[in-house]
């Protein structure tokens, strides 16, 4: 009984996670400027990752394994927040980077 309950909640969490990742990708296409796209990537994708992590927790082989899963999640959250801030700052400080023309190819 408990096993099937856990299985069903894992399935729901995994599907929710997938949906949020899909919406995050959609955000990259629908939002037109870099800063708004960062909003989509940071918030939606982190929620997706949170659901996936929750779904994977019951599969952890041991207490240490579960803690490791949570640590990876925390590291990914911190990484995402830091990256979002740094790219946003780069866009703010240099709206048009000096070598933008060289990178263009289309």
């Amino acid at each position: 009984m408990t096993d099937s309950l856990i299985f069903v909640s894992q399935a729901v969490l995994l599907i929710l996670g997938c949906l949020f990742f899909a919406v995050g990708t959609l955000g990259l296409f629908r939002f037109s400027d870099t800063l708004t796209r960062i909003h989509a990537l940071t918030k939606v994708d982190n929620l997706g990752l949170g659901f996936i992590v929750l779904a994977l927790l019951p599969l952890a082989p041991s207490l240490a394994g579960g803690l490791k899963t949570l640590l990876i999640w925390a590291a990914a959250l911190a990484a995402s927040a830091t990256s979002a801030h740094l790219i946003a700052r780069a866009v703010h400080v240099r709206p048009e980077p000096p070598n933008a023309g060289e990178v263009e190819h289309d």
Binding site: L35, I38, H39, T42, K43, N46, L77, S80, A81, A84, H85, A88, R89, H92, V93
Partner: peptide, 10 residues
């Protein structure tokens, strides 16, 4: 940056 509607820029 992870809260609703805000993103730290500077």
């Amino acid at each position: 940056s992870l809260m609703p509607g805000t993103l730290s820029v500077l």
